[in-house]
Design a protein around this nucleic acid. Structure first.
Ligand SMILES: [Mn+2]
Ligand SMILES: [Mn+2]
Ligand SMILES: [Mn+2]
Ligand SMILES: [Mn+2]
Lengths: 224, 224
DNA sequence: ATACAAAATTAGACTTGTCTAATAAACTAA
DNA sequence: TTAGTTTATTAGACAAGTCTAATTTTGTAT
């Protein structure tokens, strides 16, 4: 019976830490068992068990009214996994020529590969990229995360132009739609009109394409 | 209760397939529960359970007297994992500048990352390497494995020269010893003398180094 | 305040992969 | 062949992570 070292993390524990981190970015949301259950796609009962475990390991704090919160160690580990994830995404896109919409799922697996120097070596090999292919900042080795001004496309006014800096939704179906519309990180977009009825937007994408997109679309694209 | 698709492989199942494959390379050995238990570092009881499972999935056959044997599907999957492993080892050494003795453990994790095109893309990115950094052949996409003439250094006669083509032991401690002796894949070795008492060998390694090595050492190096 | 609804928690069960201890089968050496 | 030793197999238990079905607890709206 191998005694699990206190600092050993199972795949599952790592994914819970990531989920809690992700929810924490949404300052509005309380990190409740149900919120975590939604994020992880498991039952609330399962979450309660894991909350107990992560609390005992001092990776998170939990309080029925305040919800869960990453403690320092938990935060550090979550950020490290996200760093791995985003670096691997860059690798998959730039070196293995995968497309935008394929890389996330593979990175979900690669992010858990463990070796003390791996992220740093990968980072150096890739030339210290600042952003991943979806426009998300890649945490530095020390845990710092570069911040960027990001606005939802839906908040841009008629007549204004902007540049795509990131996607908020990394689902395959959304990314494929972007490819079809020739939208990429860096693409220039001008808001030509907004339909008052449902807030659909008429966009000029680059030089070529003029099209109307839904409010939901405009809320999934981050621009500068 | 998600019904596990018949073609889904757990990490554990994959490692058993690999272990069985590895034993099968040693034509002499019968692939018995104990042989597998040794290879995997688990109890024979655990092996019996897994043998049942893999048999039901038609990945192996098992018979008390004949032992276990990979069936076509099992063989194919084992070889695919080994292909992954060896390609990742090349990546880690050549692209991330890891050393000889560090790559195996990381590749043990990377080999299980799943995506239909991953091995082929990695293979192309690396320029279709034929051998991994330990001199082992990298299986082709179709499962073919280039064969090489390999002899144990221990079988070379006094006065003969040879070239290192592979290491039989990929343990860190052995590889570090090789580094210390300036032995690498391709290094030329001449057998100057053999001690009759214990079959130790006096070697000329490259131009510089002359040293005596144990029989065990000589049985861990493969030469052409 | 009461009553219903939503969220949190507990209880009990199941699956996978593991173990030890006991038993059964096979092998080996005198 | 018969005793003693390995192997193989079975039985029963356990840890991790999950689930469903209760059962609290909390919140909300009249
Ligand atoms: Mn991603
Ligand atoms: Mn993950
Ligand atoms: Mn290896
Ligand atoms: Mn493995």
């Amino acid at each position: 019976m191998p005694i699990p070292h206190e600092t050993m993390r199972s795949l599952t524990e790592e994914n819970y830490l990531k989920a809690i981190y992700r929810i924490s970015l949404n300052k509005k949301l309380k990190i409740s068992p149900t919120a975590i259950a939604d994020e992880m796609g498991v039952s609330a009962a399962s979450v309660i068990d894991m909350i107990k475990k992560l609390s005992e390991k001092k990776l998170i704090s939990y309080d029925k009214v305040k919800g869960a919160k990453l403690l320092e160690r938990g935060q550090k580990e979550a950020v490290a996994i996200i760093r791995n994830h985003r670096l691997w995404e860059v690798f998959l896109l730039e070196k293995l020529n995968y497309s935008w919409d394929e890389i996330h799922d593979i990175a979900e697996q690669l992010e858990h590969v463990k070796h003390p120097e791996l992220a740093d070596r990968l980072d150096a090999f890739l030339g210290h990229p600042e952003y991943d292919p979806h426009g998300d900042p890649i945490p530095k080795s020390n845990g710092d995360i570069p911040t960027t001004v990001k606005t939802l496309l839906s908040e841009i006014e008629i007549g204004k132009s902007c540049r795509v800096v990131a996607v908020k939704d990394t689902s395959s179906v959304f990314l494929q739609y972007l490819v079809q519309l020739s939208v990429n990180i860096g693409t220039k977009i001008k808001v030509l009109d907004i339909v008052p009825f449902d807030n659909s937007m008429l966009l000029q994408i680059g030089k070529e394409i003029k099209t109307t997109v839904s409010k939901r679309f405009a809320e999934s694209l981050l621009v500068d």
